[in-house]
Simulated scan of single mutants.
Amino acid sequence: MNIKKIVPLILTLSISVNAHSNSVLDNSVWGVAASYAGINVATLYGIAVQESGMRWRDGSFRPWPWTLNINKSKKGIKAGPRRYANKEAAEQALKALIEEGIRNVDVGIMQVNLYWHGNKVSNELDLLDPKTNINVAASYLKVLRAQNDIRKTVADYHAPTNAVRGNSYVNHVKRFEKIINEKLK
């Protein structure tokens, strides 16, 4: 099965679940990555929804893997999020940003920051692969989780030096996590 078919399937399984799908979610890339990070799978998915969530044509609100967010305007390129129709378009855009020397870019489904985490992949464009992106995020969350405080872990994922922003972020993620957990029941 090719990646264009797998990604929507994984994303759909993650949010459109029934009473028997908890094991499906736990055994998906989300569950494996969450287990590695030492966090609840709904927390990991809630972070993804907060980071790259958008309304899909079917009316659901889910993460979008072809998302880039430029954190600071530079060289005439405005800061802000950008969503691309497919992986190829997102790769072209990311490649152009890298060529311009713009590296403070959040990439993909978990919005992994290129500047801070680009060295965790052999090719920076690999951060647009959803599974790779989720696994890099899980590795970072595992490091943060060493503090053994899930609220701080989630806050630090977004804003490690700004407690106010971090706490606001946690509240958004927890809201999504609650919705996901209700769907898992």
Rank of each mutant, 00 (worst) to 15 (best):
I3L: 11
I6A: 09
V17Q: 15
S21D: 10
S21I: 01
S21A: 06
S21R: 01
N22P: 00
V24A: 09
L25Y: 01
L25S: 07
D26M: 13
D26Y: 07
N27P: 01
N27Y: 01
S28I: 06
V29Y: 06
G31H: 11
G38R: 07
I39L: 12
I39H: 10
A48N: 04
V49I: 15
Q50C: 04
S52Q: 09
G53K: 02
R55P: 01
R57L: 13
D58Q: 06
D58P: 07
P63I: 05
W64V: 01
P65L: 08
W66C: 08
L68H: 09
N69C: 15
N71R: 14
K74D: 07
K74H: 08
K75S: 14
K75V: 11
I77D: 02
A79P: 06
G80W: 02
R82Q: 15
R82C: 05
Y84D: 04
A85D: 07
A85N: 12
N86K: 06
E88T: 15
A89S: 14
A96I: 00
E100A: 14
R103D: 01
V107S: 04
Q111K: 07
Y115I: 01
W116S: 13
H117A: 10
G118A: 09
V121K: 11
V121L: 05
S122G: 06
E124S: 09
L127H: 14
L127R: 13
L128D: 03
D129M: 00
K131H: 06
N133F: 02
N133D: 09
I134L: 03
N135V: 00
N135F: 08
V136H: 04
A138K: 10
S139D: 08
S139A: 10
Y140A: 10
K142S: 06
V143Q: 11
R145Y: 07
A146Q: 15
N148I: 03
D149P: 09
I150A: 09
T153S: 11
A155Y: 01
D156A: 12
H158K: 02
A159C: 00
R165A: 07
R165D: 07
S168L: 15
Y169Q: 02
Y169H: 05
V170W: 12
H172K: 11
V173M: 11
V173T: 07
K174L: 13
R175G: 05
I179T: 13
K183R: 15
K185V: 09
